[in-house]
Design a protein around this nucleic acid. Sequence first.
RNA 1: UCCGGAGUAGCUCAGUCGGUAGAGCAGGCGGCUGUUAACCGCCGGGUCAGGGGUUCGAGUCCCUUCUCCGGAGCCA
Length: 463
Amino acid sequence: MQSPRTRIVEVLQLQPPCAEVRVKGWLRTVRDSKQVVFLELNDGSSMGILQVVVDPSLPNIEDVRRLTTGSAVGVRGELVPSPAKGQTVELRATEVEIIGRAEADFPLQKKRHSFEFLRTIAHLRNRTNTYGAVFRVRSKLAHAIHCFFQDRGFVYVHTPIITASDAEGAGEMFRVTTLDPAAPPKTPEGRIDWDADFFARQAYLTVSGQLNGETFAIGMGDIYTFGPTFRAENSNTSRHVAEFWMIEPEMAFFDLDDNCTLAEAFVKHLLRTLLEDCAEDVAFFDERIDKGLTARLRHVLESPFERMPYAEAVKRLEASGQSFEYPVFFGANLQAEHERFLTETIIGRPVFVTDYPKEIKAFYMRRNDDGRTVAAVDLLVPQVGELIGGSQREERYDVLLQALEETGLSPQSYAWYLDTRRYGTVPHAGFGLGFERLIMYATGMQNIRDVIPFPRTPRHCEF
RNA sequence: UCCGGAGUAGCUCAGUCGGUAGAGCAGGCGGCUGUUAACCGCCGGGUCAGGGGUUCGAGUCCCUUCUCCGGAGCCA
């Protein structure tokens, strides 16, 4: 059994003096002189660094002197008030155990590295202040998401990662197969014989758990999914990865209005948790990554979210006199520049844009009585643009079937989905939130590759 | 995928007019100091992204390939 340790985040809360404190962690730096050696220790439990003071009388002092940045050590000693500036307490070591020395070519230095470089050492970058903070925030927010839904009686549904549905137009899919790519079995006509594949049909990684989620909402009431999602798009941007996490709640007996109300409460719950439980990390982001972050998050937390139909949003954008790279008109997809101008300049706070033209939205969204729009909603927030996309779902069998056919999808493939509209269909609605986009918003980090531990992007699947 | 920018030591970068490859940090050795991005001295460290071309001579100019970054599209 290993000797016990106290996490540094807790040690820094203690009132010195405290005898027999034991910590373990990794060295950020070593400063040595004849009379005394200083170690700075971090263990990932917080941003905090514990200064360890080592007296030359320790038996292994020569080895301690030669410790390198990145080395793992355990220290036993007395926590005392620090006589010098820079820290309030320090650990006077009575024993320093060298657990794992970092070799001389340890790539992290006591200076600023580019995020670009740190991405190439994703297995080590969690030892830096920024990434440590990012992944602590990520963990807290994941927990907060579960708390929000569980507290409201939602059921957490594990929707499948492997799927046979040919998407809903949500992008390119990764194929899942056990066939030998060099010599796949062929049909008499010379095509690949998918009947011989593992699932006896073509299979893919999921692009969304929504359709499966809907079937559970129609039966279990309020549900949510929270899991990985895959897109094989050749997207090379700071906002796209091939593997990411999504949260998709789905609520029975809900309309678009109810959907917005829940989404607003959801976002505010997450921001409140962030500001309360990750105060130190948020302060770091505010100071080092994105000045004004805290104020922006507080502003959103305290503002009632606006609700506005797409038609009105288009009118307001047209009337603004602002010139855009892409023109605004009814029927056009709102571009990122439009979304941001709307929420930042015209409204000045988050806004739900609702009721989009049916041509630019997915087949499962509920047709409005006007015949030309669907009950869709996007939540736009300052600085980021779209954070949430959702809709009231089409619960009428005939209308859904027609929408499916108009989209060119085969009703046979969606027979199970259509069934829910034949057996006790109900009005229902839901939305999707990209977890990494949320973390970017919460931390001010500009690149999605820096908020997921091991990002998968085109040509990148290391680690 | 399209447009733009970039690629020089382990990292961050400089490199003039085309003329023997540089600094800081990191590493090793030594010194010094209750230090704190510690400091001082010495030392090791390079396929200048790859290939081709122009030239007496290319990190530098030209062509090309690759990679990365940013923006766009797609979207979350």
